[in-house]
């Protein structure tokens, strides 16, 4: 490698190293680089000392503070959601579009377990007279969909669906009551007593 294309400054820091023609300059370390190195290392040391050696707030701590807050809020919200409002329901049930919307939601979320048109499969038949929980009335179905029964495989939908969607679904389920199916699931639960 020739020195011809080097400037004066470069010639001054050129070392006598030569490896297969590779030479080395010995320019000083860039100041910004050295500064970055020190700052990062100091930050790291400080961070470790504060959070670990001096027991600063841990991730777990932050989690529990937030968790307490959010869980309370959520419970209050779901509690409120479960209140069945007769007028809201009537508006949905009397609107064919809304029942259609309910059917759409049912197809998206429920047929996997309740089969097309609620004939029953993993979950019970929703069109027969027999009910496990909800006594088949809108005011019984609605809160059950919200709470579900996760232990038996019925998800709690309160969190997944909006309030109006839940009414639409309820209206749809009521609308399919008594429909006939080729292969309905055997009845589960009881026929609710009429008052």
């Amino acid at each position: 490698m020739s020195e011809n294309n080097m400037n004066e400054e470069e010639k001054k820091v050129l070392l006598d190293h030569d490896y297969d023609g590779i030479q080395e300059f010995d320019f000083p370390l860039p100041l910004w680089w050295v500064t970055t190195f020190w700052l990062c290392s100091l930050f790291g040391a400080g961070y470790f000392v504060y959070y670990i050696v001096l027991n600063g707030p841990s991730l777990k701590h932050e989690y529990f503070v937030e968790e307490n807050k959010v869980m309370e809020q959520r419970e209050a919200f779901l509690e409120e959601l479960k209140n069945f409002k007769e007028e809201s329901y009537t508006t949905y049930a009397s609107s064919p579009e809304m029942v259609k919307h309910g059917e759409y939601l049912f197809r998206m979320n429920c047929v996997a377990c309740h089969e097309e048109k609620g004939a029953g499969d993993i979950g019970p038949n929703l069109t027969d007279e027999y009910w496990l929980y909800s006594d088949g009335t809108p005011s019984g179905i609605f809160p059950f969909i919200i709470e579900g029964n996760p232990a038996n495989g019925m998800p709690a939908w309160g969190e997944f669906l909006e309030e109006d969607d839940l009414y639409a679904l309820t209206a749809y389920i009521v609308s399919i009551k008594g429909t006939e199916h080729e292969n309905p699931k055997d009845p589960q639960g009881e026929i609710p007593e009429k008052e």
Partner: peptide
Amino acid sequence: YYFVPKAANRPVYSYRLSIIHFWS
């Protein structure tokens, strides 16, 4: 470190930096 100076036909910028950054 081999191919850049070879292909560019230029000396490596800083030997000192090589040492420091290698060990760190």
